[in-house]
Design a protein around this nucleic acid. Sequence first.
DNA 1: TTGACAACTGTACAAATGTACAGTAAGCTT
DNA 2: AAGCTTACTGTACATTTGTACAGTTGTCAA
Lengths: 193, 193
Amino acid sequence: MAPSGLQARILEFISERLRARSAPPTLREIAARFGLPAASSAAHHVRKLEEAGLLKRRAGVSRGLAPAQDPFLLPILGRAAAGSGVIAQEDAEGSLEVGGELARGAEYLLRIKGDSMVGAGIMEGDLVQVRRQEHAQDGEIVVALVGEEAVVKRLRRGAGGAELRSENPAYAPISGEFRILGKVVGLIRRYGG
Amino acid sequence: MAPSGLQARILEFISERLRARSAPPTLREIAARFGLPAASSAAHHVRKLEEAGLLKRRAGVSRGLAPAQDPFLLPILGRAAAGSGVIAQEDAEGSLEVGGELARGAEYLLRIKGDSMVGAGIMEGDLVQVRRQEHAQDGEIVVALVGEEAVVKRLRRGAGGAELRSENPAYAPISGEFRILGKVVGLIRRYGG
DNA sequence: TTGACAACTGTACAAATGTACAGTAAGCTT
DNA sequence: AAGCTTACTGTACATTTGTACAGTTGTCAA
């Protein structure tokens, strides 16, 4: 199921084209790019990628190639979506296209509610980019599940165990039971207007 | 020079396709979309758009259409770049691809130095998205030229004239001579790692 | 070696696609 | 009205492009 090196490069070639906002390559362009002798050779590899679920295509349409999952369209999840303990993609309040380099490492966006992290420059209404992971290091900003609620806090690991700290003196640290859902890898803010 | 309503819609149609990460339309697809009777009709409008400098195309290549200026790749300018009074694109320290919706209204990115705006959640190292304009309203965050230096401050218009305020009590307002270079429309932050 | 299977290639072809060019329609000036 | 310019359309055609299919090569097991 793992694509061969060549097929991975073909997939990357197609993604590159799309990222550069131009039309994806034709089969013959793929063949020329990788020194394949005929269009059907490219067709063969493209079919393999399609069978592996890595590539979508519109049959019969020229340049109808596109990576199956677009890593640039991130769902925006609301805090309420954490009720079940996992933040489900189905509960997205929408999605936002995030550019190539910017999207690196992020899996979803979470909209910030409240002012508990203003000391870290995270304001109400900001979108934080989150990568799903269950562990994090001391000092990192994480998304954690506290009871039924997902919160964004700074993780502190000390002798007395781990705790979640707000960056606002008005809020007390949370040292009880919690579970880390992900790590904050970036932040996006829009100024109204 | 101003494109007719139809031509503007054709341009938007092409952009939409690219934004959705799929291949731009063929001439016949454009014709079908807008009820034009023949491929040559679409070809005619495309040629007009090209002559107006709004569209680039690769001649003879299928689906070789793309908007002339890609609004998604924004240059990252450093503060030093403001020496001459204008922030020149040539002084970019790099560029960052910013997704469709996110890029709306922004023309370049400016990297924040210093902590004078921490009260507004703007931290050292953040990138602010800026739209060039010479006027701004009371309360908006702007990029302004003070002497030889470009700074990011909040604009306050009062009875005594306009002034630039930091969001950090350690810094005094700037009420002397300054010129507004642009308005901050967004903010992007990456957490290291 | 033999056979079986998958990976890959060559060729031919129908459909899709851009383009040239003559033509028509509509406005505008004189 | 006549003449001119511009906008748009119809048609034909060469090229590009996806696809089918038979053929070739390579790998692996027995």
